[in-house]
Design a protein around this nucleic acid. Structure first.
Length: 225
DNA sequence: GCATTAACCACAG
DNA sequence: CTGTGGTTAATGC
């Protein structure tokens, strides 16, 4: 199982590695099974490793001023977690936790740095990865700040339907208060937004199970904010 | 002023 | 933990 060479979900960056380099990676990484709610990395703790999400789903979150966490994003398999601090800080600047049972590979930071400095193609792929990541934050920033609640709720429903589950019937493994932390709102408002959306017939809600009944309308609400 | 939006609070299941 | 109702502050006609 801990075989980088035959890993089914190798990143584009790892694809660029030579046989020897893959060997180096393999010797310095460990695969770990996590159950829902377990920490992957913790804000403020030593960043001796970076994580690569292999299976499952995770949330990236950061302490806010009021003590409550803000969820920055939900990440899928194939995501690197904690690379932002590789070259600078020795301490993680944010936390990540599994929101469902997941598999994570922890890669020793020293070997990772070594690969970065010896293999330009590897470094380039990571720059591309980080740029895409940043662009997604730009989008989210604008969306979260300019859209009203129902629009933001519609956004995340579409995200889970289209990008995570690729189905109009899906579940969201987050509590209401987590959804609130994700769309910058409160749990009460999340409840009401979901109620609004189901009252007008766009979605059907049953606990954490959702079904999109009127995709076009939901899309419109998401776009108009 | 009046309406809308969403947070905050309290309480119940 | 979640849903609901009342209250309240901010913002926009």
């Amino acid at each position: 199982m801990e075989n980088c060479e035959f890993c089914k979900i190798r990143s584009k960056a790892v694809e660029t590695l030579t046989q020897d380099e893959v060997q180096l990676l393999q010797e310095n990484c460990a695969e770990v099974d996590l159950v829902a709610d377990e920490n992957i990395i913790k804000e403020g703790s030593l960043s001796s490793h970076i994580a690569y999400l292999k299976e499952g789903l995770a949330k990236i979150h950061k302490k806010g001023v009021k003590g409550t966490d803000q969820i920055l994003k939900i990440v899928q398999p194939g995501s690197y977690i904690g690379i932002q601090t590789v070259l600078t800080s020795k301490v993680h600047q944010y936390s990540a936790s599994a929101v469902e049972n997941s598999k994570v590979c922890y890669i020793d930071i020293t070997s990772f740095k070594q690969l970065l400095s010896t293999n330009a193609a590897f470094a380039k792929e990571l720059v591309i990865y980080l740029c895409q990541d940043e662009l997604s934050y730009f989008n989210r920033f604008v969306n979260v700040h300019q859209k009203q609640l129902d629009g933001r709720m519609a956004d995340t429903l579409l995200f889970f339907a289209d990008e995570i589950n690729k189905s109009r019937i899906f579940t969201i493994p987050l509590k209401r208060y987590d959804l609130a932390a994700l769309i910058c709102s409160t749990r009460e408002s999340v409840t009401r937004a979901l109620k609004d959306l189901s009252d007008i017939g766009t979605i059907k809600v049953n606990g954490n199970s959702f079904e999109i009944l009127n995709y076009e309308l939901l899309k419109k609400i998401s776009e108009k904010g």
